[in-house]
Measured scan of single mutants.
Amino acid sequence: MIINNLKLIREKKKISQSELAALLESSRQTINGIEKNKYNPSLQLALKIAYYLNTPLEDIFQWQ
């Protein structure tokens, strides 16, 4: 199971779900699903999230 700190990191950087979704060329619903652990992002999307949040991938997503 993958757990994530996306919501915590996103809020700390003062970025809304909609703003992050626009940067990622994704939907706000996708970001919401990832944050609620209802959806696991593809590797490509996970890497883009890490890039746009300027945060190491392993700080956002962790195996448990």
Rank of each mutant, 00 (worst) to 15 (best):
I3K: 14
I3P: 02
N4A: 03
N5H: 08
N5S: 04
L6W: 00
L6Q: 03
L8V: 15
I9Y: 09
I9K: 01
I9Q: 04
I9G: 02
R10G: 03
R10T: 03
E11P: 01
E11V: 10
K12A: 14
K12Y: 10
K13R: 12
I15S: 01
I15Q: 02
S16A: 05
S16L: 06
Q17C: 05
S18R: 14
S18C: 11
E19R: 14
E19Q: 15
L20V: 01
A21G: 06
A21Y: 01
A21V: 04
A21F: 02
A22D: 12
A22E: 12
L23Q: 09
L23S: 08
L23Y: 12
E25A: 12
E25P: 14
S26G: 07
S27L: 05
S27Y: 04
S27E: 08
Q29F: 09
Q29K: 14
Q29H: 13
T30Q: 10
T30C: 15
I31F: 01
N32T: 09
N32G: 08
G33L: 15
G33C: 15
I34E: 01
I34P: 02
E35W: 03
K36F: 06
K36M: 14
K36T: 15
N37H: 09
N37G: 15
K38R: 13
K38N: 11
K38V: 13
Y39H: 11
Y39S: 08
N40G: 12
P41E: 03
P41M: 06
S42Q: 05
L43R: 11
Q44T: 12
Q44H: 13
Q44C: 14
L45T: 05
L45W: 03
L45A: 03
L45E: 05
A46R: 05
A46M: 10
A46W: 04
L47S: 09
I49P: 00
I49F: 02
I49A: 04
I49D: 00
I49Q: 00
I49K: 00
A50E: 03
Y51F: 14
Y52H: 12
Y52S: 06
L53I: 03
L53D: 01
L53N: 00
N54C: 11
N54W: 06
N54R: 08
N54K: 10
P56N: 08
L57S: 01
E58P: 09
E58F: 11
I60H: 01
F61R: 00
F61M: 02
F61E: 00
Q62A: 09
Q62G: 09
